[in-house]
Design a protein around this nucleic acid. Structure first.
Length: 582
DNA sequence: GCCGTTTTCGGCCCGACTGTTTTCAGTCG
C-alpha cells in the first residue's frame, strides 16, 4: 500500500487510453480495444471521484467497466502500478503512442515503423523520413513520406483544439458566405459535429448541407476566400484548411437524406455507435444515407426526428448526444426540458471600472436593461487582488452609495451590490464577515494558489461554501480552457457541501472558462445543488456570452428550475431574503 | 473485454477517401 496520493479519474482515464493505444499497435482484437476506450469514456463522464467509488466497492456500477477492467483499476489504486500495462510497454514502448497523433499514421503503420526501422519517437520518425527510409516500407510510398513529414511539423506547431467561442463565429461565417455564393441551390446547411453539440472546445469543424447539385456546392466551398488549401476533394466530401489554420469538412447529400446525414455528422461517435447497434437489433443498418433493410430496400429520413422515431426514440437535443444516458432517456420519454437562453432573467457576476471592468457602473446597468434583465449584481474584485484594482472596504462602501443612487433612477431592474471576494491562499475570505454581511450578494472565487495540494485547496473552497455570507462560488475549479487545468479539487466533497448549505455553484459563461464543466453540472443537479449561469462580464459586449453558459448547462442536462437566474424578480428576491434570514 | 426487450456465448457501426495497389489496406470521423 503506497502512501502516494490516490490516482485521479483523469490518471485512470489516461492509463486506460494508453492500454487501448498500445493494444491497437499490437494489433489486438478491436473489440477488446473498444472496451478499454468505452471504459475510459465512462470514467471521464462519471462526475464522481473514482477512488471514492472504488472504496465503496461500487466499480461494477460503471457501465463499460467489467470484471477485468475493474480488477485493473483495483490494482492501480492498491499499488499505484499496473502489471498488465508494464508488460505491454515492454513489448511496445509507450512513446509510440505520440506517433498516432501524426496525421495519416495509424496503429498499423506505427507498428511497421517500429518493427522494421526501430522508430519509437517523433524525432526518430522525422529523421527517417528526411533520410527517405519510409518510402521503402510496405504500404508506404514517397507521397506518404512527404505527408508524414508535413504532419510532424504541423503537429509541433499547432494546438489541436479551438475554443467554441473562437470556432463558432468562424464556422458561421463560412456558412453565411456559402449561402450567399450558392443561393437557392442550397436546400439546407447546418453546422454539425462538436460545434453543433456546443462542446467547449472544438477539433475540426463539420458542416453538412443538402443540395440537388452537390458539385456546385463543393465547387463554391473550395473556392471560398477563407480557404487556404484544399486537403481533399471527393464527390460528397471536401476537406479544406482555412487561413486561420482550422480544418473544415463539408458533406453534401440529397435533400431527401438530410435527416440521416445531419444526425450522423452531428455525432458524437459514441452516440452514433449506440444508434447503429439499436438499428441492427431491429434488422436495420443505419448510415448517413438511410436505414437499409436486410433485403436492401431503404427508409429515407428527410428530417432528424424521423431517424430517432424509427428507432423508437424521442429527438435528442444535440448538446446531449454523448452516450451519457440520453439514449435510455429518449427511449423512456424522460429527456430533460433543457434550459434556454430565453429563460435567463438576470446576470449575477460582472465587473466595472471600479476594478478591472472596462465600462462604468452606469454603462453596465444600461447594457443589462437593453438585454431586458430583471436583475443584476455588480461584483467587482476584492482588495487583495491588487493586480485588478480590487476594492478596499472604503471604496466598496462608496460604490454602494453609487449603486443605490442609480437604483432610484431605474425601477425596471434590480441592481444588487455584490463582490467577487477572493478566497485567499490561507483559506480566509478577503473581507471580514461584517463587511460581507453589508453586501446584497456575495460571490467567492479562487484566483490564486490554484496549484495547492488537493486536501488544502478543497478545504479552502469548503470554508467559502460553508461561510453563511457566501451565496455563490464563482468559476469553481478556476480552469482556463486549453491553457490551465482547474484546481485539483475533491469535487464529491465540494458538490455535497454546496447541496447541504444551498450555496450556488456558478457556470461561468466566459468561453475561456465554461466552469463548472457539464460533467459536474449534471452531478451537481443529481445532488440537489442550485446553479447560476453568469457572464463575468467586463464589458456589455460580454453579456452575449450568456449563450455559451446556457449551452454548457444544457450539456449538463440542466433545466430552468436548476438555474437560479431563470427565476422571476419576485422569486429571486424571495430566494435572497431566505439567504439573509438563515 | 463487455454485455443481454431475440443471446451468459456470440455478437459487438458504417462509409469516404488516398495511396499504393493490380483488387485493397489504412486512416479518419
Amino acid at each position: 500500500m503506497g502512501t502516494a496520493k490516490p490516482l485521479t479519474n483523469r490518471d485512470v482515464v489516461r492509463i486506460l487510453r494508453e492500454i487501448a493505444a498500445l493494444l491497437e499497435i499490437k494489433g489486438e482484437n478491436r473489440y477488446r480495444i473498444l472496451a478499454y476506450q468505452r471504459a475510459a469514456d465512462a470514467i471521464e463522464h462519471l462526475g464522481r471521484d473514482l477512488h471514492a467509488l472504488w472504496q465503496e466497492g461500487r466499480l461494477d456500477e460503471i457501465p463499460g467497466v467489467g470484471e477485468a477492467i475493474a480488477a485493473k483499476i483495483d490494482e492501480l489504486f492498491r499499488t499505484g502500478r499496473l502489471e498488465y500495462l508494464e508488460r505491454l510497454e515492454r513489448e511496445y514502448p509507450r512513446t509510440l503512442i505520440e506517433l498516432l497523433d501524426v496525421p495519416d499514421l495509424g496503429p498499423k503503420r506505427v507498428r511497421t515503423l517500429y518493427e522494421q526501422l526501430g522508430i519509437t519517437t517523433l524525432d526518430e520518425l522525422e529523421q527517417a523520413a528526411r533520410d527517405g527510409k519510409l518510402r521503402t516500407l510496405p504500404g508506404f510510398g514517397a507521397k506518404t513520406e512527404a505527408k508524414i513529414l508535413e504532419g510532424i511539423q504541423r503537429l509541433r506547431r499547432r494546438s489541436d483544439r479551438t475554443l467554441l467561442g473562437v470556432a463558432l463565429p468562424r464556422a458561421l461565417d463560412i456558412v453565411q458566405t456559402l449561402r450567399e455564393q450558392v443561393g437557392s441551390a442550397l436546400v439546407e446547411i447546418e453546422l454539425a459535429g462538436s460545434l453543433r453539440r456546443r462542446k467547449a472546445t472544438i477539433g475540426d469543424m463539420d458542416i453538412v448541407a443538402a443540395a440537388h447539385d452537390p458539385d456546385a456546392v463543393m465547387e463554391a466551398f473550395a473556392a471560398l476566400p477563407q480557404v487556404a488549401e484544399v486537403l481533399w476533394r471527393g464527390s460528397t466530401k471536401t476537406r479544406v484548411r482555412l487561413h486561420t489554420g482550422d480544418e473544415v469538412d463539408l458533406r453534401v447529400v440529397a435533400p431527401e437524406r438530410w435527416g440521416t446525414a445531419l444526425q450522423y455528422f452531428t455525432g458524437s461517435q459514441a452516440h452514433n455507435v449506440r444508434l447503429r447497434e439499436m438499428a441492427l437489433a431491429q434488422g436495420l443498418s443505419l448510415s448517413e444515407y438511410s436505414f437499409k433493410r436486410e433485403d436492401g430496400s431503404e427508409i429515407l429520413c428527410a428530417h432528424e426526428e424521423e431517424v430517432y422515431a424509427t428507432l423508437g426514440l424521442a429527438w435528442v437535443p444535440p448538446e446531449l448526444r454523448e452516450d451519457w444516458g440520453e439514449i435510455e432517456a429518449a427511449r423512456m420519454g424522460t429527456l430533460p426540458r433543457l434550459v434556454t437562453l430565453n429563460d435567463i432573467r438576470g446576470d449575477l457576476h460582472m465587473h466595472t471600472t471600479a476594478s478591472d471592468g472596462r465600462l462604468s457602473l452606469r454603462e453596465m446597468v444600461e447594457g443589462a436593461r437593453r438585454r431586458g434583465y430583471a436583475y443584476i449584481a455588480i461584483t467587482d474584485h476584492s482588495q487583495s487582488l491588487g493586480m485588478v484594482n480590487g476594492l478596499d472596504v472604503e471604496r466598496l462602501r462608496a460604490q454602494r452609495a453609487e449603486i443605490r443612487a442609480l437604483q432610484v433612477e431605474y425601477d425596471d431592474i434590480l441592481i444588487l451590490q455584490g463582490a467577487e471576494v477572493e478566497i485567499k491562499a490561507d483559506g480566509t475570505l478577503d473581507y471580514p464577515d461584517d463587511v460581507l454581511a453589508e453586501l446584497d450578494i456575495v460571490i467567492a472565487s479562487l484566483h490564486t494558489a490554484l496549484r495547492q495540494p488537493r486536501e488544502q485547496i478543497t478545504q479552502r473552497l469548503l470554508n467559502a461554501i460553508r461561510n453563511p455570507h457566501v451565496d455563490i462560488i464563482g468559476h469553481p475549479t478556476g480552469r482556463l480552457l486549453l491553457k490551465r487545468d482547474g484546481a485539483d479539487l475533491d469535487m464529491d466533497a465540494v458538490l455535497q457541501a454546496a447541496a447541504e448549505t444551498g450555496t450556488v455553484l456558478e457556470i461561468n459563461a466566459s468561453p475561456e472558462r465554461l466552469d463548472l464543466d457539464p460533467v459536474y453540472v449534471r452531478q451537481a443537479i443529481a445532488r440537489g445543488c442550485l446553479l447560476a449561469i453568469d457572464t463575468d462580464a467586463h464589458h456589455t459586449d460580454d453579456f452575449a456570452n450568456m449563450q455559451y453558459g446556457v449551452w454548457q448547462a444544457r450539456r449538463g442536462w440542466a433545466e430552468a428550475r436548476h438555474i437560479l437566474n431563470t427565476r422571476s424578480r419576485e422569486a429571486f428576491e424571495a430566494w435572497l431574503a431566505s439567504r439573509r434570514a438563515s
